[in-house]
Amino acid sequence: MVLNLTIDNKEISASKDATVLEAARENGIYIPTLCDNPKLKPYGGCRLCLVEIKGLPRPVGACTTPIQEGMVVQTSTERIHKLRRTVVELLLSDHPNDCMVCVKAGDCLLQELAYLYDLQNNRFYGEKRQYTQKDGNPFLERDMEKCILCRQCVRVCEEIAGVSAIEIAYRGFKAKVCPSFEDDLNCEFCGQCVSVCPTGALSGKAWSRKGRTAKTNEVTTTCPFCGCGCSLKLRVSENEVVRVSSDPDTINEGWLCVKGRFAYEFINSPDRLDAPLIRKNGKLEKASWDETLDYIYDKMDSIKQEHGPDAIGGLLSARCTNEENYLFQKFMRAVVGTNNVDHCARL
């Protein structure tokens, strides 16, 4: 069923289950948010999506208000603008504001809002939260001074990952996101929390000082680990993959696991083979491609002449591409002349 309503003097219709925020978005009307995520249940925590609705005495959160037939909504009155500006100002009053050296600079929602609302000065001075304790885990950097308590990380961990490794502890000014009993994180390190964090509070430890978003190129590809086939966005800087993310509208819905998101260091490992090797006097020694290919041809061909093609076998790879595997079996069958081709599907 569809309901009709008016947002910013525009007559629109939306599904009866939609919230004001969803109806506005579907119709191209921008309402700023910090805690909303279309894949998570509405939370109503950041108070940034406040809108005025005719007949209601006070502004309400668009993300938690269901639409009604005939509703009249204003999303950007002067009053609303002031309220939103104050919300961001309050968040910044207790924020390190160290964008210059923050990993998130350039794709930080808070930074963007501070810019949009022209918050050069802050009317609110006072105590700032100080969390000196950093987490001992090897994957996730948790810079909790930058947390705005949008609870997206907590929600994604519970609603999507089914892990519930973190919650908000304490109340008011002392409120903070932490694992039970403020221990070190004990989780699956999928980094879903990092992917939804709107500020620099959560990031990957490996990302540090490695080229922020603006300095990187992105390449969309497919994960090399298990068979899920998650779509990856590799961020590349100076011929190095410096971080990995995924778009929400992919087969994996933007979610990744610890390997897909964090296990890419092997690409630049110093252990990588960088030249062909031939065993000489019992030792593997570097050789040129030409020498190596000649060596293989001589040996393989003489084995083929002496013992027939079926004395040769080939194992192709569940890690390699379709094209490579196709060429490999073509080589074994058409060039060597044997069907001794297999791979490790059984192992």
Binding site: G227, A318, N322, N325, F328
Partner: peptide, 13 residues
């Protein structure tokens, strides 16, 4: 179990 185990079977492995 592996990124292209389906593909390597499909490709005549």
């Amino acid at each position: 179990g592996q990124n292209n185990v389906q593909g390597s079977s499909d490709m005549g492995g």
